[in-house]
Design a protein around this nucleic acid. Sequence first.
DNA 1: ACACACATGTAATTGGTTACATGATTTC
DNA 2: GAAATCATGTAACCAATTACATGTGTGT
Lengths: 196, 196
Amino acid sequence: MSRTQTTYVILGILAIHPHQSGYEIRKTIQQSVGFFWGESFGQIYPTLKRLAAEKLIVPSSSGPSARSNRQEFSITPAGHDCLQQWLTLPYRDDPPRNEFLLKLFFARDAAPGVAIAHVRRFQESNRQILATLEYLEPLARAHNSANPGFPYWMLTLSLGVVQLRACLEWSQSTLAMLSEPAPAIPETNLITKNTP
Amino acid sequence: MSRTQTTYVILGILAIHPHQSGYEIRKTIQQSVGFFWGESFGQIYPTLKRLAAEKLIVPSSSGPSARSNRQEFSITPAGHDCLQQWLTLPYRDDPPRNEFLLKLFFARDAAPGVAIAHVRRFQESNRQILATLEYLEPLARAHNSANPGFPYWMLTLSLGVVQLRACLEWSQSTLAMLSEPAPAIPETNLITKNTP
DNA sequence: ACACACATGTAATTGGTTACATGATTTC
DNA sequence: GAAATCATGTAACCAATTACATGTGTGT
């Protein structure tokens, strides 16, 4: 009966790939769901303890090659039940908070270049993430395509890709618009206060 | 020297439209930046008090028509300075957390219909938001196109629209894929464990 | 008279990050 | 033997939500 989201990420990751330590779990998260999910150590380690206490995971060892100074875990049948139960529940969509859009919305209260700077950073950041995803995709395909979870992994990836592409197209046209001498809005003739 | 994000939403909203009460501010937020930002009363009222104490806003009245049982506020020059300063700072992009994608990623651990149900809800929710935005847009254009902030408002709106459209296209093709008898992934031949 | 929207606020709780502290192992 | 990375953990803090508590004005 544990309810933090961290719980389920850990269970899900261990369901895919057992015998991982807290440190490894975090790495796996970054490399698999990293573009839409993040976890900090301050969250992972306490959760691992709690999950072990609840018997949803157990300390385990990946054979004689296991290193001494780390503790690996695997998911138990109870843990798997817990994961499945959570999966069937409706996902919660928390109220979105996008500080980039917020600053853009208020941008007329800032100096002229500010909006452009934000959009450029947005563009650059999206470009980078997209590049990472497009680099990762063929690798994932080559290594994991036989895994029964693979189709779902690709779906998340493809949503990421189409969203990023949409953001990049928007960035481009927005930068073009913001760079114009007089900010022109389609189908609108702005009348400034200074015009007599 | 106040730092919560709530601070700046309130300042920004009051910069656009002064003489608003906490209750009204929340409504305005929902109607303008609602699709990418949310605020709760538990956050708004304490923040208003703090901002007033810091002289970034002042209690004000919108003339004799003001109602008795509510307190309106307006932004001060100091508040405007504070807002401007924040606007020039780089936006922070908090680690994204998308529970929908998380459940989809782990969906192979769930019963067959689960993924489809989630995607359908995702589609439905996006459709609804898109409909709202597309309904709002011409209204905003008609009422506020002369406002100097208007071009920026439209930019946030248009990003919302293109993102939502991308999500809807993805939803459609995803549902088609998930509804196929054998989940087929392009360029991949799945080999199940049961095949001898 | 009743219901509903308007309106303000507080307290408890949550879910999480950040910074700190510590030590082992590998690599150069 | 120094530096980097691997590895685990705790304490302090934070932003924000939720639920609760209360009262007013308006429309039917």
